[in-house]
Every structure is written in structure tokens, then in C-alpha cells.
Amino acid sequence: METMSATRATALPGPRGPLSEQVMGALRRDPARLTPTRPPGATEEDAALTLWVLHELSYRGFGDVSPEAEWEPSVLALRRHLQRDLEARLRSRWPGHEFSTETFADDLMAFIEADDGPSVASYVHTQATVEQVLELLRWRSIYHLREADPSTWTLPRLTNAPKAALAELQYDEYGSGRPDRLHAHLFAQAMEALGLSTRHGDYLDECPLEVLEMNNVMTLFGLDGRLRGASMGHLAAFEVTSSVPSSRLVQGLTRLGMAPEIIEYYAEHVVADSVHDQIAVRLICAALAADEPDQAEDIFFGAFTCLDQEARFARAILGRWGVAA
């Protein structure tokens, strides 16, 4: 669709403190002169926004930033510093989990299915208003308008069996060769039908820390080949916990009489993710753990982190709506 703004370059978001202000100023003027340190007084939110901006340079970049910035050493140094900080915080939240290499797939599936975090979908199913759903979609748009992209980074880092399985899953995410069936495109069409902007990042300024961080996590796990296990564990948890909530969203959005495009988007995920979750757990993660046993623990770490990030997201948005999570 020519008019769809999803193809237009993302705009730099508004700053949220001294670090993001300084970094975005340098990116606009001369990325080589960026100071690769974190100034005192930079909050977690300021750092998360800065990392989101620096990660974005490795996707499609920004209209007003030179593409040279992606590989500028001072930019990479700051990005690495912020990534290390994020990874250390994620690892400090991970309590660990016992599993057997013989029953790896079943153990991973059971670990994810046992998740009992707060559910935004259950609230949308029976109680949310149209305004609340639109807010949810604006927050979700930071990921859904580039759905599946972070895991694609992991593809060349894998051995044959998990690589073939991930390629199969991503092929379906990317529309099986049909641009009009690409999941990110289905979401953009739904956004347009709802009168929302389809340009990636347009709603970033209203997104809280939890949204910035959950997106940073996916990009960190994808971009860093060392974290390939965490990336695939995250993907598995995401897929396993998608289909049932998507069913609830279909029912909630139908209850509210919302546009058919957004109902179809979630209906597609009910069926697609009932395939993808099995592929992710049994054909990607179990195969990866068999080929590279030193990645097994990180697969569980990645799965936990996905569930943990989703729970934080749910508490943030339900809290904003005055709902006990």
C-alpha cells in the first residue's frame, strides 16, 4: 500500500534526560563526537531510551541520522556499556531452573506454561474500553510494527537443525513470500483501520520504561551472538504465551466492535502461534540445546526474561488503568 506510512523513516523520539538528550544531539550533528559515557543523573528510563535509539540504528535507522552512525566506534562503545548494564540487571532477576537434557523440550514447555503472570488479555476480554485497547495497541506497536525482526539476527549464529527450524518459523512470520501476509504489515493495516499512525516509533514518547526495556531485551538477545540461547528461549516463551491470550483479545475486541483488521490480526496469531510455539520449543530450542549444551541454561534464562518482561508490562498498563494486577 503506497500511502501507508510504515515505510517512512522513524523520527528520533523526545529525550528523557541528559544522556538521551546528549546522544540524540550528537547523532543529529556528528556521531563521531559522541561521548561514550553515562553522565551522573541519567535515570534508568533515560538509559533505556538511549539504548533503544542506538539499537534502532541497526534496524532501519532514523531519517535525520546518518547511516554511518550504526558502526561509529563511539556509538558502539556507549551501546555496549548500556547493553552490559541491561544484561546484568536481567541476570540478577533470573532465579534459575532445574531441567533435564533428556526431556529438554517438555521441561521448557512446562516451565513456560506454568507462567502465572498478570494477564492484560484477560482484562481486555471482559472489561477494557476502546480507549484502553487503543493505548495497548500504541504501546505494542513499538514491537508489532517490526514483528519477528529481532530473532532474525540469531539465524546465522545457529547450527543446522535450529537454523532450519527458525528459518521456517520466520518465513511464516514474514508472510511466506507474500508481503500482504507479513505479520508486521497485518498490524500496520489494523493500525490504519483504527486511525492510528503506522510509522514505526510514532508512539514511543508515550511508552513507559517497561516498553522500552522489553524491546531492548529482544534486540540485545538478537544482536549479540553470544546470547543466541537467550534469544531463542525468549522467542519460545513469546510464542507459547501468545495463542491463548490472542483468543481472549479476539473475543474482547469483538465485544467492543473494533475494526475487523485488528480482530483478524489476533485471530491469525491464535492459529499461527499454535504452530510456532511447537517449532520454537521442540525444533529450535531443543535442537540448539542438543547441538550446543552450553546454551541450554541461557535458553531458560531467555524464556524467563520474556515472561518477566511481559509481567512488568502488564503491571505497568493495568496499573495505569487502575486495575489490580
Binding site: 506454561e113 521456517e168 518465513y171 511464516d172 511466506s176 495463542s243 491463548v244 483468543s247 491464535v270 492459529v271 499461527a272 502461534d273 499454535s274 504452530v275 510455539d277 511447537q278 517449532i279
Partner: peptide, 26 residues
Amino acid sequence: VDRPVVAVCRCGFSNRLPWCDSTHKR
């Protein structure tokens, strides 16, 4: 069939038969 891999329901409780809709998880 319009996707590279499909999941066929085995529990019999899917609302989208013959395809799996993850009802087995519940």
C-alpha cells in the same frame, strides 16, 4: 493449507478445527 507448517488439533477441543488453537494448554 496456506502455511509452511500446520498444527492439527489432537485434543478435540479446538474452536478452529481441524487446526490447533492451543486449547490443549487450558
